[in-house]
């Protein structure tokens, strides 16, 4: 009889959601921030992002070709995760970075952090975060002064030129910018993709609507970070919104901390992870104002295997084994 039947184990139907689909969704969610970055910082910003993406993808191909995987197979299995890493690396540097920074950053992120550990899903830390920290440490000497976006402050005080982009709780200073300006990123120094918070939030809402991320967790992270800053600052509520809206907190919370591979697998584990992340970010910010979100996520990524080892789901109907009472 016919022997051309496909034989496989159940189930025989599957969802349409694939790893590639998820990664493409993340790329789409990053588009508004990219567009706003180009509007604010010009074509040099676009060049940086494009270079980052190109070299992230190239890095993956080069690695797999060296590993003697046929080109066609790589293309067929290409899952867009390196595009996401590349985009994030491009978006988390400022236009004051030299043109070669994203190239090395992407290659480091994809080859060293991701592929050497076994590719998508096997990395210990988020490649984009690692790439960002790599660039921050390596290219400090080449980084010029932060540039301001092309569009100036649209609301409130216009003394933005000298404002620091990050709240400095230890000194008790708040950026001299209105909340609306901080939300739009107008008149505010910052990285290409981090400046316009509204675009990032739009991306976050898209991801939540597509059920790629659970929006609760980034919200927990942002809220805990804001509240902890307020508490550290001596219950000065004026710190709350500037703390949330400054620096890389929102892009970190929505796009980097929620990376599947480097978050715990259980609901409870995720709660612990994101609360700890919020506290760590605020504390680090108190001590320094350099790349705090990146370092906080990087550190917390390393705790994930530990959380996953100890926080497990209990099977349905599980009862704690009762201790047997000793017969008297």
């Amino acid at each position: 009889m016919e022997n051309n039947l496909i034989y496989s184990s159940s189930p025989h139907i599957k969802t349409t959601r694939t790893t590639r689909r998820i990664m493409i969704d993340v790329c789409i969610a990053l588009l508004p921030a990219t567009v706003m970055g180009v509007v604010y910082f010009g074509l040099y910003a676009l060049a940086l992002v494009a270079l980052a993406v190109a070299f992230a993808v190239a890095g993956e191909y080069i690695y797999l070709l060296i590993m003697k995987k046929p080109f066609k197979e790589i293309t067929r299995e290409f899952d867009f995760s390196s595009v996401v890493s590349g985009m994030l690396i491009g978006l988390t540097i400022g236009t004051n970075y030299p043109v070669y920074a994203p190239i090395f950053g992407s290659l480091f992120a994809v080859i060293v952090v991701k592929m050497l550990f076994g590719g998508t899903g096997k990395n210990v830390v988020n490649p984009a975060i690692a790439g960002r920290v790599f660039m921050f440490i390596s290219f400090q000497w080449a980084v010029g002064a932060w540039l301001l976006p092309a569009i100036g402050s649209v609301y409130g005080e216009t003394v933005a030129t000298s404002a620091t982009a990050v709240v400095d709780v230890s000194k008790g200073t708040v950026p001299a910018l209105s909340v609306i300006d901080m939300l739009l990123g107008t008149g505010m120094q910052g990285c290409i993709g981090e400046t316009c918070k509204l675009a990032l939030l739009a991306g976050g809402i898209y991801l939540a609507a597509r059920k790629v991320i659970n929006i609760i967790f980034p919200l927990i992270y942002i809220a805990v970070a804001g509240l902890t800053t307020t508490v550290i600052g001596g219950f000065v509520f004026a710190f709350f919104f500037p703390a949330i809206l400054s620096g890389g907190l929102i892009i970190g919370a929505i796009f980097m901390a929620t990376d599947y591979t480097t978050t715990p697998n259980t609901l409870c584990g995720n709660m612990i992870y994101f609360i700890a992340l919020g506290i760590l970010t605020a504390v680090l910010r108190y001590a320094t104002n350099m790349e705090t979100v990146s370092f906080a996520i990087l550190l917390m990524n390393l705790t994930v295997p530990l959380i996953d080892k100890f926080i497990l789901n209990k099977p349905f109907g599980y009862k704690k084994p009762q201790k047997q009472k000793e017969a008297k």
């Binding site: 790893t19 899952d79 590719g119 899903g121 978050t263 259980t266 789901n313 099977p315 349905f316 599980y318």
Partner: peptide, 19 residues
């Protein structure tokens, strides 16, 4: 099949609460 991306969906959907 490709690499597990650790998304945790299987654990979230499992009616027996397994991982």
């Amino acid at each position: 099949p490709t690499n597990c991306i650790n998304c945790g969906l299987c654990a979230r959907k499992c009616p027996m609460r397994l991982m």
